[in-house]
Every structure is written in C-alpha cells, then in structure tokens.
Amino acid sequence: MIVAIFTLSALAGASGLLLGFAAVRFKVEGDPVVEKIEAMLPQSQCGQCGYVGCRSYAEAIVAGEADINQCPPGGNNGIIALAELLGRDPKPLNAEYGAEQPKRVAVIDEQSCIGCTLCIQACPVDAILGAAKHMHTVIARECTGCELCLAPCPVDCIQMEPVAATITTWKWTYPVAEIEAA
C-alpha cells in the first residue's frame, strides 16, 4: 500500500517536472494554425473578408469568429484548401463578401492624377510610387488587385484592369472532350 502510493506519487512528480520543463523549453510562440492559414490566404490584404489584412482573418478563423468562405480572392480553391487543413466541410463562397474574379491590377490615369498621395497611403503593399504634387504610378508586378486605392482617389483616376494572358502566363486548359455515352 505504502509502496504503491509512493511509486505513483514519484511517477506523478517526475512526469509533472518533465511536462513543466517541456512547456518552458518547447514553448511555441504564436499559434501555428494561424501561420498555416495565413500561408494559404492570397495575401491581397484587401479586407473584403471584413478584417484588416489576411493575418487578422486567419486569427479570426482560429478564434471561431469568421467562417472559411469569406475570402473572394482566394476563391473556391482557397476554401477547399482551408477546409482540408481545418477538417471541415467545404462550402461555397459567401456572396456577401464579394465574388471570385480573375486577377486585376490597378492602373492610374497619369493625365488626371493630381498627386494627392491618398492612394499611396491606402496601398497595403506599397505598390504605388509617387510623391506629393507629382504623378503617381502603380508597380503592376507588386499590385495585389485589392482595390483599396479606388475609394480614396478624389479624381477617380484609378481603374482596375484585367491582367492580359501573355505567351508566358498562358496555360493548357482542362480537356473538354465530351465523353460519349456508352
């Protein structure tokens, strides 16, 4: 009896020490699931999901505040990937937050630009170049197509234009040959 109590207490004590040590030694900074979700999001930082930036949305998903179908730029593929990661059922994109569309980039009509810098302040990825009272321009390669620069522009000189397919970005399409009924 005494031996059993002693043994169990010793075991419990040893395990406690071990776990305590592990908790300190192997402490994980931040939530790894948030990191994983963030890596799957398109990083357009557009805020269409209702949160400021992709990281906040990832945190909201983990906290259970947001659903996985609120990211229009990520589209259907993004939802499926998130569903797989989180072990949930995929669902269609919530139309409240917008519709999936081909990638577009912002283009500034340089004739009309008055150099107010408001779009520069709005751009989440610093993809607009310019200075006060000087013409601004969008670095097309860096533009994520978030549309956040459209609203602040006082002269409405920014347009979203679809990215044209070039010979280098062209893709073979899914074969569409109809399968004949046997």
Binding site: E38, P42, Q43, Q45, G53, C54, P124, V125, D126, E142
Partner: peptide
C-alpha cells in the same frame, strides 16, 4: 502571395 505578405509586414 509570399512577396505581398512580406511587403505588407514591412509596411
């Protein structure tokens, strides 16, 4: 996306 994430964080 990774590039955009880095630029956003830098900003």
């Amino acid at each position: 996306a990774e590039l955009a994430r880095q630029r956003h964080r830098a900003r």
